[in-house]
Nucleic acid binder design. Structure first.
Lengths: 298, 298
DNA sequence: TGATCTCCATAGGCAGCACCTATCAGTGAG
DNA sequence: CTCACTGATAGGTGCTGCCTATGGAGATCA
């Protein structure tokens, strides 16, 4: 049984005429006759009674017709469905990102993506880099925005470096500015009241490591919050915090932003996906847009 | 898109393995790979991500899989349905017959047919020969048992003579026997009280024509009934009636049967169907059984 | 690290078949 | 009777699906 044969069969059933059916399906009449014969032979029953000028379906033909129509419709649907995925009129991207990236980088990007491909669903998984890497490996995510270096031994993940972001110190605008001359050194943080993120934040590890490299343990007034909470505590004058510059830029005028002097402190943000399978079409498109619109790199 | 390709696709989706899928569908692995490639090319999207030892469906593959399964299932159903019709495990016979044949010939035949092909529905249309011929021509009947000669100019009907049946006179067992020496002539019916069928019965025309050929008009005590009613009136002693011998034989012991002397009166029963289309398989089978089990012809 | 295995892709050859054009055969109308 | 119409048949051709043989890229293990 071939799709062609079913197409021809339906055409004859609808026109009740071999020659006109052949024209309708753009094939010569002998070819169509032959294929109908072949289908009849395979099924072991005549499908049409070929009365001169009065072609009618036999009972076997009557039984076949609705199924043939449905099969052809399903095939058409299949083509259409796949086409919609390919053309990004439909689809899904499962994107993971660390909390700081969710507030900093993503909103504009996802907005732009959604405007361009409104039919594609965006599923965002907010989590620590460790979790995200595991989810990627399990196939639960298509793409993740992570902070390098990756925590775990990455199981066959490909990472594309996206941008290097300076970390800055934020403090309440109502408090005297920390440091000197509008800039601050890591060493100046010794003894300073710090508002620190919860365990699991990559920023926490990064800041701690920097302080320890300078030979001191930082002092925390409050610790344990998420990004928004930390900024709130800083606004309230509880202390200063080390945050990505992109986050600081969005934090509003009641927060002062002080650059870290010298080599400063940076973090590298990368896009990760499994190496062994290509991400779906929609995820590749998101990746492409991310790389294209990437904020000033370096 | 070919059924083969969908079969291969489903096999790979189920085994997650090209080589094993190829074994499952009894084809060489390169052929299977090639067909999957062809399908992917036609649809314009990869269906599998071919990670070493970890074949998975892409989103396009996921979209296609349920449709592919349904298409294959429908194709299987189509084969099965047609096969059931062919093997007479299912089907339909639309059979027409005159009322006298419905009571005389059909019950045993239909019983035998149903016993042999219990899945075939029997649709019986009881009517006059004229109606039956029209229904046949319209395609509303597959087969009809009619009395020859056919009334209307038969529009391309094929008739197969089935049997010639004597007509006999039935009378109430409680009444004195008509005629002489256990037989009766048509002429003896002159002035005799006759119970006559309604208009449209072929038997009515036959009997009337026979009487007129003898030069008299028969006398009716009651007229207008169907077969059962006529026999009932005869039983009640209202008169005698001319009926087919087959009907008379089944009428019970309270009815006397008297043969018509001389050339007698006969009618020819035939099986009719359209000449331009073959009847459905089930109808042909019924026709075959009818000819095979036909009661003593002639 | 190199040998081996596994597994999918590629290459080349063959055969089947779907398609074509040309023609035949049966039917109905003028 | 002749012609037009319609479906079936015949013969030839090119596409393609199948095969076997082989390549090449991970895994696995000594």
């Amino acid at each position: 049984m071939h799709f062609q044969q079913l197409t021809y069969f339906v055409a004859v059933a609808e026109t009740r005429h071999f020659t006109r059916a052949a024209e309708a399906v753009h094939v010569s009449q002998p070819s169509l006759s032959q294929q109908i014969r072949a289908l009849e032979a395979e099924l072991g029953a005549d499908l049409f009674s070929r009365a001169r000028g009065n072609i009618t379906l036999t009972d076997a033909g009557e039984a076949l017709l609705p199924l043939a129509r449905r099969i052809l419709a399903d095939a058409e649907t299949a083509r259409h469905e796949v086409q919609e995925l390919v053309s990004l009129r439909r689809g899904r991207v499962r994107l993971g990102a660390t909390p700081s990236l969710c507030t900093g980088l993503l909103p504009d990007l996802l907005r732009a993506f959604h405007d361009r491909h409104p039919g594609v669903r965006l599923l965002l998984e907010e989590g620590g880099s460790h979790d995200l890497v595991r989810q990627l490996a399990r196939g639960a995510l298509d793409l993740a925005l992570v902070v390098l270096p990756l925590p775990a031994a990455s199981p066959a993940l490909t990472t594309v470096e996206l941008l290097r972001e300076d970390l800055v110190v934020v403090s309440a605008a109502t408090e005297p500015p920390p440091g000197r001359d509008g800039s601050i050194r890591i060493a100046d943080l010794e003894g300073a009241p710090l508002v620190m993120f919860r365990h699991g934040y990559n920023l926490r590890e990064l800041t701690l490591a920097a302080c320890r490299a300078e030979g001191f343990e930082p002092t925390f007034t409050v610790e344990g919050g998420e990004m928004d909470a930390v900024l709130g505590f800083v606004r309230a004058g509880l202390g200063v915090a080390v945050v990505p510059s992109m986050v600081a830029a969005r934090a509003g005028h009641d927060l002062r932003r002080t650059a870290l002097a010298g080599s400063g402190l940076r973090r590298t943000i990368a896009l990760a996906h499994r190496s062994d399978v290509d991400p779906p079409r929609a995820a590749r498109e998101l990746q492409r847009m991310l790389l294209e619109h990437r904020p000033v790199p370096g």
